[in-house]
Amino acid sequence: MDTPVEYETKIPRYCAQPAQTQPVLRPDLGPDRVAAIQMVGTKWVNGTVLHYAFLDRGGDIGGPEQLDEVRHAFDKWKSLGIGLEFREVDDPADAEIRIAFIEREGSASFVGTDALTIATTEHTMTFGWKLNTPYGRATALHEIGHAIGFAHEHQNPFAGIVWDDEAVYTELAGLPNEWPREVTFHNILRKLSKTQVAGSAWDPESIMEYGFPPGLIRKPEKYGREGIESPLDLSAVDKDHVLRWYPALVARPARLEPFQSYPLQLSSGEQADFEIVPTETRKYEIGTFGQADANLVLFEERDGEPRYLTAENDSGQDRNSRIGVRLVKGRRYVARVRLYSAWGGGGAALMYW
């Protein structure tokens, strides 16, 4: 995805996002419960340390300077003060995000926790054009936005965009994208569910927005006449949304003691963290209780860093998250619980025994 000038065309190359997983939910679930589950979707639990590794040294789009642009993009997201951490590692098997530079594949990233479904020998993020340009740097920010759980902004159902479908298909079938119709539909024309977007308004300045030339949009007429400029930086709304999902971690987690129930006084999307330091080595059970949909994720501290150990998600099922795991005496573990929905009246709690 070089710049529009380099390609001598009015449209740039675009990110071709892979299909995102959707939870399979029972048809009898109430709409509020469904909405809460879909809103949290593939977001990471806050406090996750996301490790990234490069599978090559710039591939066929450039040299090591391309890697530096990706590092700078991770740093820019982190500089907002979010609760996620980003760490570069050498071994791809230790990384949740694995990055390759392959021109023929273009630029793309799996969304959020979908990266965990990909074999550790395969990439989860690709870059198909040089990143040491303003548009390339924006691309790096855009793909990392996908990697932490955000979708394309122009597919926001609140945008009110009415496309000239055939004009879009024709434009994207040509250079430089050369997309088949199904890729164009998935990445541009398809509307997201209202429960999949973080706000109730469209942000055309979002880094998750594509730029479009005039003539592809029928409504709003302004964008049909003028097109949409390609955003080159994080917008104010981007910053607000990412801090809403991943606020800064300001306190050490509360200590979770065996056989003691701890209430989860959370709203949808909120999270509670607990520290576990077992006094003996054995198999333990860690679980939620009550009428609530929750994602329970357990981390083990290694060399001062929490590393993902295991997880259980009970969303949309009339049961609770339950993890059976061997814990080692004296080691420090962190259990993080992200609440999707409290669908019953009795609240929810966490316990380990």
Rank of each mutant, 00 (worst) to 15 (best):
L50Q: 05
L50E: 01
H51L: 08
H51Y: 14
Y52Q: 02
Y52G: 05
Y52D: 00
A53E: 09
A53N: 07
A53D: 02
A53H: 04
F54I: 01
F54N: 05
F54T: 00
F54R: 06
F54W: 04
L55Y: 05
D56M: 07
D56N: 14
D56H: 06
R57V: 12
R57T: 15
R57H: 12
R57K: 15
G58W: 04
G58E: 02
G59M: 03
G59T: 06
G59D: 05
G59S: 06
G59C: 09
D60E: 09
D60W: 08
I61G: 08
I61F: 09
G62F: 12
P64T: 13
P64V: 12
P64C: 07
P64L: 13
P64W: 03
P64G: 12
E65H: 14
E65D: 13
E65C: 09
E65I: 12
Q66K: 08
Q66E: 15
Q66A: 11
L67M: 15
L67G: 08
L67E: 09
L67Q: 11
L67F: 14
L67R: 10
D68N: 15
D68A: 14
E69M: 15
V70N: 01
V70G: 04
R71S: 10
R71P: 02
R71T: 12
H72Y: 08
H72L: 13
A73S: 11
A73D: 00
A73K: 02
F74T: 03
F74E: 06
D75E: 15
D75Y: 12
D75P: 04
K76L: 14
K76M: 10
W77Y: 09
W77Q: 00
W77F: 06
W77P: 00
K78H: 15
S79P: 08
S79R: 13
S79G: 12
S79Q: 11
L80Q: 00
L80R: 02
L80I: 09
G81H: 04
I82S: 00
I82D: 06
G83L: 06
G83P: 03
G83Q: 01
G83S: 04
L84T: 04
L84P: 02
L84G: 02
